[in-house]
């Protein structure tokens, strides 16, 4: 039962498997915007992590608790003051970056609290998104399921944008996985990849 859940999750969320592959057994993990806690549960069961989530929505808090993962109800953009510097091995922002208002401050907070940061986000440079815009419409897809007037996404970006951001903000990218569905997009990733996952640390 448990195994099936994990297998199903891995299939539905290819970024989960990519993230899990980077996390060693027993690491301390903070998941910002953890939703219903499925990533933390995935990491707990596959990596035995000591994990905490931060989430604001009531329904998600209840879902996390039901999932047996630790969750702190708070607005992650009001700061991570609760968390000591260097208190986590990894701070994860999974499919949340594009919905944050104060993105720069948050990335810096991630790297204050964590030794490394991991983000995953929908690649706005994915060819299907480009085609939508080319034909004059904002993209609506599996990765970007919202209408323009009803979306939490305020800071969409491409792989190039994110990498330029890192270079300009003393953030050192350690590793990158680009996926389209469960497939890895190795060739022309900024065009052919729909989801990007980055692992990074404080740069010099």
């Amino acid at each position: 039962m448990k195994y099936n859940n994990i297998a199903r999750l891995a299939a539905e969320r290819p970024d989960f498997a990519a993230i899990a592959a980077w996390i060693p057994q027993g690491a301390a993990v903070l998941d910002l915007g953890c939703g219903n806690g499925s990533l933390l549960r995935f990491l707990k069961e596959t990596r035995g992590v000591c994990g905490y989530g931060v989430e604001i929505r009531d329904l998600d808090i209840v879902a996390c608790i039901a999932n047996g993962v630790n969750v702190i109800q708070n607005d992650l953009e009001s700061g991570l003051a609760e968390f000591e510097s260097d208190s986590f091995d990894f701070v994860i922002l999974s499919q949340t970056l594009q919905a944050t208002r104060y993105t720069e401050a948050l990335i810096h907070e991630m790297l204050r609290v964590g030794r490394e940061g991991i983000v995953s986000f929908p690649n706005f440079g994915y060819w299907q998104n480009r085609v939508s815009v080319l034909f004059g419409n904002m993209p609506v897809s599996k990765e970007l399921p919202y209408q323009w007037y009803d979306t939490p996404n305020v800071h969409l970006c491409t792989l190039h944008d994110f990498e330029a951001f890192c270079a300009n903000h003393h953030v050192a990218v350690l590793e990158r996985r680009v996926m389209t569905g469960e497939r890895e997009a190795r060739w022309l990733p900024n065009l052919l990849g729909s989801t990007a996952v980055y692992r990074f640390q404080r740069g010099i």
Partner: peptide
């Protein structure tokens, strides 16, 4: 958190002040 205890924290949006903990509330009860 600092002692790595398992901990969850819920902040219930309620109008009833300190008395809220004695009153029924859907999110609190969930």
């Amino acid at each position: 958190l600092r002692n790595r205890r398992n901990v969850s924290y819920a902040e219930i949006t309620s109008t009833h002040g300190h008395d809220s903990f004695l009153l029924p509330h859907p999110h609190y009860f969930d």
